[in-house]
Nucleic acid binder design. Structure first.
Lengths: 342, 342
DNA sequence: CTGTTAGCGCATTCAC
DNA sequence: GTGAATGCGCTAACAG
């Protein structure tokens, strides 16, 4: 039996018409309510299967308040957020929930408070709750269950998943120190971003602990994006006494830093060591492969969704602040320092 | 001025109340209609900015039929679809469109026809059109503009973006032949998947062209997923006369194949060469790094969204079948064959 | 057991 | 400048 020709979008009344019953009956079958004969039910089921009908997310959430949909709100689909999405997908498997990942990609990206606007756009009508990926503001109370991943302004009162940025940054810096580097540049995020602040603090702590004086010239703001990291990376390498190693506060900046160095005729890691932060898959695609500090990004997504589902279902989650460990991943972009005159 | 305490989700009437005007006036301001004094308009704008209000996607799409939202419908968030998402995000930048990426992750994944049900769930009420990522069926006509990426059953009448699977598979096989391999295993997808069929055809063509006889024992079905690829990979390696190289039809299967080989005490690439297909970022994270055939996945996402926007806006897209080139990416998982007695 | 009917929520857009 | 009807597809309450 071939499917009827569908020109419009499929609605419950298409199913009803095709099965020769009323819309209400179809609804009952779908929601497994009593009061439908087995025969009618199976006929309706057959039509549903034949047409590939599924109820409209929107219309359904108009009536029933439980929607079984969670939102993952991201400023952009870039390596960090898409990694997170993989973990989120894993978390909903078998849970009966669906994922709507939403982004206006850039339209709002630059602006502080994109997460509030996104939430305003989706919550109440479409999703039961949301994971906010690296939101800019978390002090506000929203009318919806929300979990923040790696919020830019720190934890505040909102349920949060992050990783140990301070420890990770110390690991990175200590690794470079261990290779004999003393002039180590730091390409940070922005100081209004909590993770960036902690990474800088880790950098400073490690230097101080090693008795290396901190040179403010070696600390620049890279802004986490390749485009915004390029200029400060150039500035670092143009110093009279340039660094022999650079710790960039995320992988995308680190990768761009390597490219800048190579443009300037420097070899990585022979002439310049570079270390990143995040361990997005792209870090292994870079040439040379990037040594970096790994955050368990997928796991962060997994945990955030688990917490959110607890919240949505009215259970209090085990913890409201989950912090996952970071670790050093050694690849090819760091080498022992060469003495100036070698 | 601090924001009012918001407990419920934000609606247009919250804005109206806060600004001391009617709901209708706020709507006019938002949609830049005439009939609002400049002073009122700017007061309303200020309140909107202060509250971080944005209109509800759902409510808005009830009235206006242009929603400026496109759906990316995926069976699961895995490396291929998330790569695609990056390209899709790039395509909407500055276009005024937003992206809703949707997946029920596994609930429907196994079933043929998930794309029709997903579409039924979102189209009409939420999105203007959709990119279907590796859909299983494309012969049906949907009531919504749709572009298929790498459809499992070939192109049919639907606008499609794919890559040159046949050529790519020949590249992979020729690479192994060039390294001296003659017993080359093939770990395919399923034969109902067009891409898998083409990759097998490329494999066969290359062997025939090189005068190597095709051994049916060396051809197995891996199903594209790590779990489903494991058993057939084991079988290949357990043959009396096992292959010296395996071409797996996608990277995830190839990576699992390397793990199986390592479990069995084989070294890759010394004892077994493995080549994949896709070039997802994970292929560079594998140990050893996977040699593979690259599809320009991000570019595929970019093109698909461009085509879709043309369709949604009623322009006929330049082409309805875009096929992008594949290329060999040499890394570390392939080596010249060793003679049996060496 | 099945059909009829009245909303659900929110933004838009008439008519005033 | 505002009040009130309207759009959508579905569900729930009730009638037959």
């Amino acid at each position: 039996m071939s499917a009827v020709e569908i020109q419009r979008r499929l609605t419950i009344s298409d199913v009803a018409r095709q099965a020769g019953v009323s819309v209400a009956t179809v609804s009952k079958v779908i929601n497994e309510r009593y009061g439908v004969s087995a025969e009618t039910a199976s006929r309706v089921q057959a039509v549903i299967a034949e047409l590939g009908y599924e109820s409209s997310l929107v219309a359904r959430s108009l009536r029933s308040h439980q929607k079984n949909v969670i939102g993952i709100l991201v400023a952009d689909f870039e390596p960090f957020s898409t990694e997170l999405l993989k973990g989120a997908a894993h978390a909903i498997r078998g849970s009966g929930y669906e994922i709507v990942a939403y982004s206006a990609s850039g339209a709002a990206e630059e602006l502080v408070g994109w997460e509030r606007r996104y939430l305003s756009r989706l919550s109440g009508t479409l999703i039961d709750g949301a994971v906010l990926v690296t939101p800019t503001v978390v002090d506000a109370r929203y009318g919806t269950p929300v979990v923040a991943v790696d919020p830019h302004t720190g934890r505040s009162g909102m349920p949060t998943v992050d990783s140990d940025n301070l420890k990770g940054a110390m690991l990175a810096t200590e690794h470079l120190l261990g290779l004999g580097h003393r002039r180590i540049g730091f390409l940070g995020g922005r100081l209004d971003l909590e993770s960036a602040r902690l990474r800088e603090e880790g950098y400073r702590n490690a230097l101080v602990a090693a008795g290396v004086e901190i040179d403010p010239q070696l600390i620049r703001v890279g802004g986490y994006r390749p485009e915004s990291a390029e200029q400060p990376a150039r500035e670092l390498l143009a110093l009279d006494d340039p660094p022999t190693a650079i710790f960039a506060a995320n992988d995308l900046s680190a990768i761009r830093t390597m490219q800048v160095a190579q443009d300037l005729g420097l070899r990585v890691p022979e002439d310049l060591s570079v270390i990143g932060f995040d361990n997005v898959p792209e870090s292994a695609l870079a040439v040379p492969q990037l040594t970096t500090v790994a955050q368990p990004i997928q796991e962060m997504g997994y945990q955030a969704v688990r917490m959110l589902i607890d919240l949505v279902e009215g259970r209090s989650p085990g913890q409201t602040h989950v912090s996952l460990p970071t670790e050093l991943v050694e690849r090819q972009s760091c080498a022992p320092v060469r003495t100036r005159e070698s």
